[in-house]
């Protein structure tokens, strides 16, 4: 080689190729993602975030929450669940049989065998296909994350380290705003072995009046503020919690179908 041209050619080929592949193509393919409909329903997913929840994403970003928390649920495959829909004519025999069988997380063949056995005993059964994976087993979601989940996020906070739990579904798992405020103020008061740093700077102390202020946080006595003071969450803390509660990726969509549990 006598000139730099081959090097420039290599750069154009290598970086140019991967820029087209991993920057332009995703921008075109995913940049046009729109709201989708929830399967077997006319509801649109995801709902647009409103008010405090929108501001809360910026609090999440500013404090680098994504350094320790991901927002992406993995799914390794699917499994079959067998559900009993009718007891049939001999409920006693059926319940004896049921006590010997596993009905969830089966392979297709095993599910067919179980379904046959139950049908033979007179029961009416339905076989469902359900998402399966370690993340789902530990209750972090009901399906894997899909592109639509992040439609209204800027910046998208996927995260790459799980020092704490995944938060893609935290709004479903812990729907109590006060629990979240308490957890942010004194993590170990909510989760005894938590290593999360306290976000006390998102709260302030104010002199308690004769009756507790309606905004004041109900802190357990061992974490309580000095006597005569009460802990009040700042607007940022409330926004952050509103955002966390808005993280609910639990609707079945075209890319990740499943049968939601029947509503009672």
């Amino acid at each position: 080689m006598k000139t730099g041209l081959p090097v420039i050619f290599a750069v154009v080929l290598g970086l140019g190729g991967s820029t087209v592949g991993f920057v332009l193509a995703p921008a075109v393919q995913l940049g046009s993602v729109k709201q989708t409909t929830v399967l077997n329903s006319t509801d649109l997913y995801p709902p647009q975030r409103i008010g405090d929840a929108t501001l809360g994403l910026q609090v999440y970003r500013a404090n680098g929450c994504a350094a320790c928390h991901t927002q992406q649920v993995r799914q390794e495959g699917v499994a079959c669940d067998v559900g009993l829909t009718g007891p049939g004519k001999n409920p006693q025999a059926l319940s004896n049989l049921l006590s010997t069988l596993t009905l969830t997380h089966l392979t297709k063949e095993a599910a067919d065998t179980v379904a046959d056995q139950l049908t033979a005993a007179g029961g009416k059964v339905e076989t469902h296909i359900v998402p399966a994976g370690a993340d789902l087993d530990r209750g972090w979601g009901v399906r894997h994350s899909v592109a639509e989940d992040y439609l209204y996020d800027y910046p998208v906070q996927l995260g790459n380290l799980r020092a704490g739990p995944d938060l893609a579904n935290i709004g479903v798992r812990s729907p109590d705003a006060n629990w979240h405020l308490l957890h942010l103020y004194a993590p170990t008061s909510a989760v005894s072995n938590s290593k999360m740093p306290s976000f006390k700077y998102l709260f302030h102390l104010q002199k308690a009046g004769s009756t507790p202020s309606p905004e004041a946080l109900n802190v357990p006595s061992s974490f309580a503020a000095p006597a005569g003071y009460e802990v009040v969450p700042s607007p940022e803390a409330r926004q952050l919690v509103a955002y966390l509660l808005s993280l609910r990726a639990n609707q079945p969509v075209y890319d990740a179908p499943f049968t939601p549990p029947a509503k009672p």
């Binding site: 393919q29 992040y150 996020d153 910046p155």
Partner: peptide, 17 residues
């Protein structure tokens, strides 16, 4: 900014590069 999860792809692409 591009919309949605494409941000994640571009971010990982840059980090690796």
């Amino acid at each position: 900014p591009v919309r949605g999860v494409a941000q994640g792809v571009i971010d990982i692409w840059f980090g690796n590069n």
